[in-house]
Design a protein around this nucleic acid. Structure first.
Lengths: 243, 243
DNA sequence: CACTTCTGTTACAGCGTGTTACGTTGGCAT
DNA sequence: ATGCCAACGTAACACGCTGTAACAGAAGTG
């Protein structure tokens, strides 16, 4: 990763130099600017990783500038302002700012927030479209994670329903930890209706039973999908995970 | 765009219900949780767009949880805490939180910051899509995007109807996100007649079935164009986009 | 007009999932 | 040990959702 290039937009020269110094001491490249025209000049010229944009810029307004830039560009923008009232902050977020920092600010905290926004921008752009799937292996079984089935130790392909698959994922994600029925119901709940969670009755037991009948050699005496009496269920097998 | 799904992690039930209510009133799906286990259960199973994570969780610690999650996941995380000192905020940013909101907070401002983080994540991740990309590739198939046909992995040219093409585009534009029938109907509806949307009956099912018969090797057991029971349909293949 | 192609509707069969009911198990007090 | 009771397993059932064949308009095309 090359050195981040930040645009420092402020009409107060003292503030600009303070900011510039702070950034340079922390391995950023700080490029000063004081008007929308200068911002656009920089954007069209070279790479800009983030803009620190003061809200009160003499006759210009950082909020408006941010709104205009956002219509054309995705560059991360952090608004900086002495105006710290909630409605003023919200106005900043509404025009698409990534953060809003009130003056005066703690320099270290400012750096942390700059890094946070830049990291978010970088993180998200890297693995677009690729579903994060992991392959689990346990006791000879292979669970792909993106298919609704799994391979038995003997080589058969066992079909699972979507809900059984979901249950298996939840259990595999919490190895050797007993999960209560409520926790499982909540995790399987797609809608977010907390009401529904209570009216589930014995559904989880049924689901567990059906999954057992598919993956346990002797469902009457389950070795992997064990029940923790009075608590819930636990996946008690050695699990290896591959990205 | 489908409805954002947020995980609300707090050990205070009152706080959870307050947050849940606020979020639901603003068109979010709020999923409650109160421990790292529950978070992981949710992450392993369904799509989570953002986690609101309280820092003080009884015997667990939101900062530590955030640090651990960040090592494995890119999911946006906003820390929420009554601890508002600068060094405590910085600790949050240091472990990879996207934002740090102090309690008590202004609900509207909280919503604005949630949207800001989500927008940053979405903006960055949909770069390819926004470039008005034309060619999609998935599982050996090539879909031009401006023609009503696509190339099979074996080299055949498969003709699609206009409506099948439109359906494919909608699904490809929302990778790994389950779309409800209503959402699909709305997206396919060019006219804007909202009346018509409701009178569609099982048309989408038929459309999906016909598309499956053309692109799935075994239409009875679809691997790409999967159905999410009780919800709708989802395109579950790795998609790459060009130009 | 006849003909073809596309698209929506209906009907029915099959499957997935939650509920109920009842038998069994395991822990605990006596 | 014995009896009790709550927790659990599971068969049987009911219901809703989905896949699909068959049909009927609708929309082009000559």
């Amino acid at each position: 990763m090359s050195i981040p290039r930040l645009l420092v937009v402020d009409d107060d020269p003292e503030m600009r130099s303070m900011m510039t110094q702070l950034l340079q001491q922390n391995s950023f490249i700080a490029l000063p600017a004081s008007s929308e025209r200068e911002i656009r000049a920089h954007l069209s010229n070279g790479r800009i990783d983030l803009i620190l944009l003061d809200v009160m810029l003499g006759d210009e307004n950082g909020i408006d500038i941010c709104a205009r830039l956002r219509r054309e560009q995705d560059v991360p923008i952090i608004l900086v302002s002495a105006l710290s009232a909630d409605h003023q902050r919200m106005a900043g977020y509404e025009v698409g700012a990534d953060d809003y920092i009130a003056k005066p600010f703690n320099p270290q905290l400012m750096l942390a927030r700059i890094r946070a926004v830049m990291q978010r921008a970088r993180r998200s752009s890297s693995l677009a479209y690729r579903r994060r799937t992991r392959t689990f292996r346990f006791d000879g079984w292979v669970f792909d994670g993106k298919r609704d089935d799994l391979h038995s130790p003997e080589g058969y392909l066992v079909a699972l329903s979507q809900r059984e698959t979901a249950l298996l994922k939840v259990l595999l994600a919490n190895p050797h930890i007993p999960l209560t029925r409520d926790e499982i119901v909540t995790a399987l709940d797609v809608t977010g209706d907390s009401d529904k969670s209570e009216a589930q009755g014995r559904a989880i037991d049924m689901l567990v039973g059906r999954l057992r009948s598919k993956i346990e050699t002797n469902p009457k005496d389950p070795q992997m999908l064990r029940t923790e009496r009075g608590v819930g269920y636990i996946f008690a097998a050695d699990i290896s995970v591959e990205e």
